[in-house]
């Protein structure tokens, strides 16, 4: 971690009667990947827009790369990224899109080839962007953001529409950027992406920060989690779980309504120490534990617990799953 890339203090933004941001404080260090999560309408896009110079706060302080941002919609050099998907011109090829942008900003022409190479689009660089799939557009948008050797990268749903290979590549690029000292701010509904990439996370709800800090600390905020436990004898494991303090059985062999449970599997709820105790006891009785996994990932559980907005979270997860399904269907293929 190095110097501070973004310092936000008490910023507020209203759109008529709607309060988009209400006293938000955030710090993002250089070389960190900072996740921004929250239900729909939480103010994420407004905050990202401010970081990219698309709007300015009504009050509060916003400091980007050491420079206080005023009300003239101009952010400092070294800030790059996109909100609501990358902006690309379909009539131009991928290379021309980047070359035009490089010329506009006065970047070296060689940076275009470098950026295309980093996101794995060199082979289709001379194809019109109008024929690109969503995932290819996302990667090209990331390449556009890389052109100017950014110090702060602001990315809204960067993995949206990416196939597994593309997602891994984007993750590698972001990780490398952070290692090189770039501050990266990512907004996403994909908790698995955030968990894989981010060192810190800020959780927004109704324009306010409900959590901001290291990812590990957020996971601890989630309290009891549901775990799916697969053992060599489900019935006996259930008996052990019933006798373990701090553990409640959500579903299991002989119980109704548990889609995740089976003869060998049961779903239990408890804290991490209680789960440690349960596993010790099960193993102590001579049973084999074949699988133990949280039904809801810790970050998502924390999200649900802190925002209290389960419907939005479920929608977000569904939407993300649907996006993944689309991509898997069309793995690597461009939509013509």
């Amino acid at each position: 971690m190095g110097s501070r890339a973004v310092r936000v203090r008490g910023i507020r933004k209203d759109f008529g009667n709607v309060i988009a941001l209400d006293g938000v404080d955030i710090d993002v260090d250089a070389g960190s990947v900072h996740g921004l999560v929250g239900p729909n309408g939480a103010g994420k896009t407004t905050l990202l827009g401010m970081l990219l110079g698309l709007s300015f706060p009504d009050s509060g302080e916003l400091e980007i790369l050491g420079r206080t941002v005023g009300r003239d919609l101009a952010v400092p050099d070294g800030v790059a990224g996109f909100v609501d998907g990358p902006g690309l011109y379909p009539a131009l090829t991928a290379r021309k899109n980047l070359r035009s942008l490089a010329t506009l900003r006065g970047y070296a022409a060689s940076s275009v080839e470098d950026a295309l190479g980093q996101v794995g689009l060199l082979e289709v660089a001379d194809d019109p962007v109008g024929g690109f799939s969503l995932g290819m557009r996302q990667r090209l948008g990331l390449a556009a953001a890389l052109l100017g050797d950014p110090r702060l990268l602001v990315l809204d749903e960067p993995a949206n529409g990416l196939d597994p290979a593309g997602k891994r590549q984007v993750h590698r690029v972001i990780g490398s950027l952070a290692e090189a000292g770039v501050a990266v701010i990512i907004s996403s509904h994909r908790m698995d992406d955030l968990a894989a990439l981010c060192s810190d996370v800020t959780l927004l709800s109704a324009g306010r920060v409900v959590f901001s800090g290291p990812l590990g600390k957020l996971a601890a905020e989630s309290g009891d989690l549901d775990y799916r436990l697969v053992s060599s004898d489900g019935a006996r494991a259930r008996e052990v779980a019933a006798r373990t303090s701090g553990i409640s059985i959500v579903s299991g062999p002989g119980m109704t309504g548990g889609a995740l449970a089976s003869d060998a599997a049961l779903v239990v709820r408890g804290s991490v120490p209680a789960m440690d105790e349960l596993i010790s006891r099960i193993v102590g009785t001579g049973l084999a534990v074949r699988e133990l996994s949280p039904v809801t990932p810790p970050l998502e559980a924390a999200f649900l617990a802190l925002t209290g907005n389960t419907a939005d979270a479920a929608d977000a997860a569904d939407a993300a799953d649907a996006a993944d399904a689309d991509i898997i269907d069309a793995t690597g293929e461009r939509m013509r």
Binding site: L65, G66, R105, G106, S176, G181
Partner: peptide, 29 residues
């Protein structure tokens, strides 16, 4: 899949400058 190699030669902690694109370049764009 290409190898990811990122080189950022001159990072500075000095406050960044604000430099809008010139009118000539924007016009050309």
């Amino acid at each position: 899949m290409s190898t990811v190699t990122l080189v950022h030669p001159s990072r500075s902690d000095a406050p960044a400058t604000v430099r809008p694109a010139s009118l000539r370049r924007t016009f050309r764009f």
